[in-house]
């Protein structure tokens, strides 16, 4: 079975665990395509392939896949979308400048907004995720190929001490944003026939943070080699291994 992993910087946690994982899964072949941040939004569907005219995206696709510059949908038996701004943590940015009366919190912000406006902003942020767009493109040419979506992990709690005071209210904002985010997630799952891979309970610190041990030594996409001790948003190979265990059953393969 040949799987195609498409992601942004969070794909590194999966890639870091893949080689070890593949040793015990001889029937599996994995190919990886990634570009940082939201750059994968630059992918377009041409014929039955995902391509980009953005040289920076093309370069990153080439670097992460070992030379390929496009993703041929028919080449793969399944797709795993990793990160790609699909996470509760990705919609929290709404709260950087706009808060409802119930989420005023500690950090300074610019504007009060209504619950209706906040919910709508969360939904718009969700819809802007590359993950949704890529799944829709794949589905438009193949209604059957399995697609699993792995969300951006929650940050580890250390992030609350960062100079950006906004993170001090991350828990409050996550609790407020979760319902509209889940509503949109349900819509995404239904509309695109995607299997959503929840973050494991055992990786959580509280409800909205990831245990510190999973972010220590994580690697970001830039350079693919730099290990960052003080990284709070990207997870390491231990986390990636758990993700792979949870992803595989969706492709009929034992973890």
């Amino acid at each position: 079975m040949r799987l195609c992993f498409i992601g942004n910087s969070h794909i590194v946690m999966v890639k870091s665990a893949w080689d070890e994982f593949a040793k015990s899964h001889a029937d599996l072949e994995g190919e990886f395509f990634a570009a940082s941040g939201s750059k994968m939004n630059g992918l377009e569907l041409r014929g039955r392939s995902l391509v980009s005219d953005n040289p920076s995206v093309v370069d990153q696709l080439k670097a992460t896949s070992g030379g390929r510059t496009s993703i041929d949908v028919d080449r793969y038996d399944g797709f795993v979308l990793v990160g790609l701004n699909l996470g509760l943590v990705n919609v929290l940015r709404v709260g950087q400048d706009h808060r409802t009366v119930a989420t005023v919190g500690k950090a300074p912000f610019g504007h009060l907004c209504s619950d209706g406006a906040f919910d709508l902003a969360v939904k718009r942020q969700f819809d802007a995720a590359s993950s949704r767009r890529i799944a829709e493109m794949i589905r438009s040419v193949d209604q059957k190929v399995p697609i699993a979506a792995v969300p951006t992990p929650h940050a580890s709690r250390g992030i609350t001490g960062r100079s950006n005071q906004f993170w001090a209210d991350a828990e409050l904002l996550s609790a407020r944003a979760e319902q509209p985010w889940r509503e949109q997630l349900e819509d995404f799952i239904r509309a695109c026939g995607v299997a959503f891979v929840e973050q494991r309970e055992e990786t959580l610190d509280g409800r909205y943070f990831t245990e510190r041990r999973f972010s220590v030594g994580s690697v970001r996409l830039r350079g693919m080699t730099e290990r960052v001790e003080e990284e709070f948003r990207h997870m390491n190979a231990d986390y990636g291994a758990l993700v792979l265990q949870d992803v595989m059953p969706h492709f009929g393969s034992a973890a």
């Binding site: 940015r93 706009h98 504007h111 709508l120």
Partner: peptide
Amino acid sequence: REPAPLGFDAADAQLY
């Protein structure tokens, strides 16, 4: 002085 929340498109902004 009161910009729309992140992600709002023009129609969303107008609605609010």
